[in-house]
Design a protein around this nucleic acid. Structure first.
Lengths: 232, 232
DNA sequence: TAGATTGTTAATCGATTAACAATC
DNA sequence: TAGATTGTTAATCGATTAACAATC
């Protein structure tokens, strides 16, 4: 509510969106530490990005600072929260009640971040009716009705990889436009649907690539390699 | 071992490295399905990238196909595996034996992908000596010795966010150059150290941003927005 | 030979960042 | 006024991709 008004619909690059959670986290920390203002240089240092990028990102969201002083921490925290849609809860459905699905349903971090788990579904009739983290597991065939009834906004795919595309299609058909995919499968979805993939195997294999090069270099195989800094 | 020989040290872009696990996964599936060759068009379709990008990626790794026929599936699987360093195991240490750390230690997917968990450490003296997934938890003060003794290659940070930077410095000091960071904190590390961040809150907040825009548009607030396809 | 598909050039696109005028 | 820092221009950098000659 309120805030700077109409930034809606303006072009905000995916790269910028990806950095907002990191800015937010650092700003919240600064606020807890009692800092009232922060310069783009300091915020850039905390988030490992270039100061000009910080200023450009904030500016593109209509968030402005004060020349000579910097940015008001509480104000920017509020504005980024609004931009990220964190002023409301988004109900989550978990598809797949295996090890991963159960771990996610029990993970308190989801609810505390404004993403309460309101449904768990699975194909296995043996699991249907059992309770996970206080939620009764429903059958996959109930998916559409449950999404409508419980006003689910985000679908989490925690099934085997082989089921992921099929499940994604079911979720999209039921009207969902936000999917968090925990399988290694790359999903094909309409352009209006957002998919984020969180895959441990992928991350480890990427680390392995660089580790391998480091080891090779160390053992004298040769050529030093260009490296880049920190996260992502 | 063996393979195409010397691609080591050649410039391979981070973007290319990030797509390799996805190519590999699709190729392994194709192999299981009995497909002997695959065109860049087909592989591109399966991984949601542009065919020219597939050809450029493979070419940059020294992996070649046959004009008019496509790429030999088994050959490319082997080559990508070698490039990614998947022909050997990389031992993992988990720092932080809380909910997340325990879930990761018990996750069979790590070992099966060639990343066996060989150590778990925690600051809490109450946890030291207890057993998790068959591994005795050690104290954080043992970190350096354990990394050396058990030939750990990858450090996984599963502590509270406030401890992440400190832990990262300990890991780097002990000689590790591969870190998987499960906290929301952006780590500062030397340029020769690779950090991958896996943060659920970040992913959800990014989804929330787009969800918010979709909802706003639906409720008539306005301007339709440009969207992009599928994963990442 | 005709058809298919690679490998690479060159154009395009988008994101990053140095630099600096504006201004607190 | 002097110092600090934003907001934005313009240059740079790097990654994507259309297009096509090479060639199986």
């Amino acid at each position: 509510m309120s805030g700077t008004g109409s930034t809606e619909g303006l072009a905000v690059s995916a790269a910028t969106v990806g950095r907002l959670p990191s800015y937010l986290q650092s700003l919240v920390d600064l606020d807890s530490a009692g800092m009232a203002t922060v310069s783009s240089d300091r915020l850039a240092e905390l988030t490992n990005v270039n100061p000009a990028t910080v200023r450009r990102d904030l500016s593109s969201l209509g968030i402005s600072g004060t020349r000579g002083l910097g940015y008001d921490v509480k104000y920017v925290v509020h504005e980024i929260s609004v931009v990220l849609g964190l002023s409301q809860d988004w109900s989550v459905m978990i598809v797949g009640a295996g090890n991963l699905g159960r771990a996610l349903a029990n993970y308190q971090g989801l609810t505390s971040r404004g993403f309460p788990v309101r449904a768990v579904v699975d194909v296995d009739p043996q699991l249907v009716g059992t309770e996970i983290a206080g939620i009764v597991v429903d059958g996959l065939d109930q998916l559409t009705e449950i999404i409508a009834e419980r006003e689910i906004s985000v679908g989490v795919i925690a099934t085997p990889a082989s089921e992921a595309q099929h499940v994604a299609e079911r979720l999209v058909a039921a009207g969902l436009t936000s999917i968090l995919n925990f399988t290694a499968t790359s999903l094909s979805v309409p352009t209006n649907v957002q998919v984020r993939r969180v895959d441990l195997a992928t991350e480890l294999q990427i680390l392995s690539f660089y580790q391998q090069r480091t080891s090779a270099a160390r053992s004298g195989t040769g050529v030093p390699l260009e490296t880049s800094d920190g996260d992502t």
